[in-house]
Write a protein that binds this DNA or RNA. Structure first.
Length: 397
DNA sequence: TCTGGGGTCCTAGGACCC
DNA sequence: TCTGGGGTCCTAGGACCC
């Protein structure tokens, strides 16, 4: 579903989301550096960011950089409740909301002008309502296109509001460093830097052919369009998830095949449960591996028929793992993950099981018990004695 | 800085079909 | 015997984002 790109578009982005929720819920944390997460930083408050603490940083380094920081364990249910409340405020503003992650969304407010005032008034009210109703700071960028709105919110952070006027788009965009462009990460920025290109304006002065030869067709064309301010993408409502994954870092420790199988089983168990909970089925099962030297590999298999059955997915994942055994023994394994893709809607089951047992019924029975008594109520025999660790959803920043 | 977890999209080669 | 062009699907890798 999409709507015509009339704009203006708001990009609303919660600031240091997990850390802000912690500061909201515990007044003692306000104004202090807060780090969410133990072994690795899941989120840092702006006070902690000022010391150089960044998301995904190791916990040890973060503590050295910011000895005064309060480190708190993540409370995922609190964050997802806060996210729901914020998205409810978005929905009060306009039905045309495209969620990007747990803490970020585009809102198309074109056509609202007569009812709700100018875009900047709408954005200011949105910020006020999120503050009053949910108690969290949020930054909003306003522009004619999604890309410019997103760049604007990035520039305005934290707790800011920035409107890019129609007649000031290039003046806003061109002085910015190339890293501000959506889709420019370390690799692309590095390639541009070696050519002496540091600003968006310099990118815009290159020809499309030149960018394509430097960066490849996909990235080259993408950057050419963005730097020249061509972003026709409309706000899309009701986008469905295209894949679902779960992974687990293993550290340097050697794992026995039995241990690996137990971890794999736990990952598949968790994933297929989520899959069924969402009423979806998958066709492709991908095994993700990371080795001791931090290189990665994937092995995948596509099934003839879509499935949401734990045993079917597990069998496929086990075969992929078995086939990768020599690779793992050579390279050493530091992470194992499973991703499910080619997701379909769960069709009504028309086929009857030929042997009188229905794997789906067993899955549903197990899911039911778990949702009533918690996921620890039923544990596979192979998992006893192994801790699968907590599951962590999308990072906020 | 010895390094989470969950996603998206793009590219390229090979198999297979017409 | 040597050979076209086009399309789709699958697999694997890579860059990037939050």
């Amino acid at each position: 579903m999409s709507v015509p790109n009339e704009g203006p578009i708001l990009h609303a982005d919660l600031d240091a989301f997990y850390a802000s929720v912690e500061q909201r819920d515990d007044p003692r944390l306000r104004g202090r550096p807060v780090i969410v997460g133990g072994g690795v930083v899941l989120a840092a408050s702006y006070e902690a960011k000022a010391c150089g603490v960044r998301t995904a940083m190791g916990g040890g380094l973060a503590r050295r950089l910011c000895p005064g920081a309060v480190v708190v364990p993540p409370r995922m249910s609190a964050y997802s409740a806060a996210s729901k409340a914020v998205f409810a405020v978005f929905a009060q503003t306009t039905p045309l909301v495209e969620g990007l992650s747990i803490d970020e969304a585009f809102l198309d407010v074109g056509g609202l002008a007569r009812l709700a005032g100018t875009p900047s008034r709408i954005a200011a009210r949105l910020r006020r309502e999120v503050a009053e109703q949910v108690g969290l700071p949020i930054t909003v960028g306003v522009a004619r296109t999604k890309f410019l709105a997103k760049v604007a919110s990035g520039v305005a952070k934290p707790d800011g509001l920035l409107v890019v006027p129609h007649d000031g788009e290039l003046a806003f965009l061109h002085p910015l460093p190339v890293e501000r462009l959506w889709g420019v990460g370390q690799v692309t920025a590095g390639k541009l830097h070696t050519r002496g290109i540091r600003t968006v304006g310099q990118v815009a002065r290159l020809g499309e052919a030149e960018l394509v030869s430097l960066l490849g067709r996909g990235t080259g064309r993408h950057l050419y369009a963005l730097a020249n301010n061509h972003d026709p993408r409309p706000v899309r409502v009701g986008q469905r998830r295209r894949s679902m994954g779960a992974q687990r870092a293993l550290g340097r420790k050697q794992r026995s095949p039995q241990e690996l199988d137990a971890i794999l089983t736990a990952l598949v168990d968790r994933l297929t449960r989520r899959l069924r909970g969402a009423g979806r089925e998958c066709r492709t099962v991908t095994l993700r591996l990371r080795f001791a030297d931090f290189t990665r590999a994937t092995r995948s298999h596509t099934l003839r028929e879509p499935t949401a059955h734990t045993e079917t997915v597990l069998e496929t994942a086990r075969r992929l793992l078995a086939a990768a055994r020599p690779l793992i023994e050579r390279q050493g394994l530091t992470l194992i993950g499973v991703a499910l893709s080619q997701l379909d809607n769960d069709a009504v089951q028309l086929t009857l099981p030929f042997d009188g047992t229905d794997a789906g019924d067993l899955d549903n029975a197990l899911d039911g018990v778990r949702s009533r008594f918690g996921s620890s109520a039923i544990t596979r025999a192979t998992l006893l004695g192994h801790d699968d660790g907590p599951s962590v959803p999308l990072l906020p920043d």
